[in-house]
């Protein structure tokens, strides 16, 4: 098996080639310019994950939305389930950047955290 991928770790966008000679999970990655490349490529073929940046409703702040993200990447297949849960949440200002907004999202052991400090007003 041979697969071509574009690394999305950083804006370099390296073109990666993954070769699995005997289709036994021994991946050989080339084309990367840093050590994050092979890790991404193998992950992408076995268990692709993404960080989900989105918003939740916030009350008593300057604006009605608080930006949040999953603290770690979550499996790609869980993205829309995650959005359903995150969109139910309403929080009250004040909130600090890094505050936990949802603990253990979908039982994945990953938290959703605030990415902005919003004062009460």
């Amino acid at each position: 098996m041979i697969k071509e991928l574009t690394c999305i770790n950083c804006p370099m966008g390296c073109q990666l080639t993954v070769v699995d000679k005997n289709d036994d999970g021994n991946y050989e990655v080339t084309g990367n310019t840093c050590k994050r490349g092979p890790k991404y490529a193998i992950n992408e073929l076995t268990n692709p994950t993404r960080v989900i940046p989105t918003t939740v409703v916030v009350r008593n702040a300057m604006l009605p939305r608080l930006p949040v993200k999953t603290a770690e990447p979550i499996p790609k297949g869980k993205i829309f389930d995650a959005m359903k849960v995150i969109n139910q949440v309403v929080v009250d200002a004040p909130i600090k950047s890094g505050d936990i907004i949802i603990e253990n999202l979908l039982g994945l052991g990953i938290n959703v955290v605030s990415t902005k400090t919003m004062a009460k007003c």
């Binding site: 950083c10 918003t55 930006p67 993200k69 990415t115 902005k116 400090t117």
Partner: peptide
Amino acid sequence: LNQCIHNGFGLHTFNEELTGPEYAE
């Protein structure tokens, strides 16, 4: 940056992947 809530900022400057509001902060 306040409206760029997606991640991918700061890889060069802070060597970690931040969202826009985090980078601004």
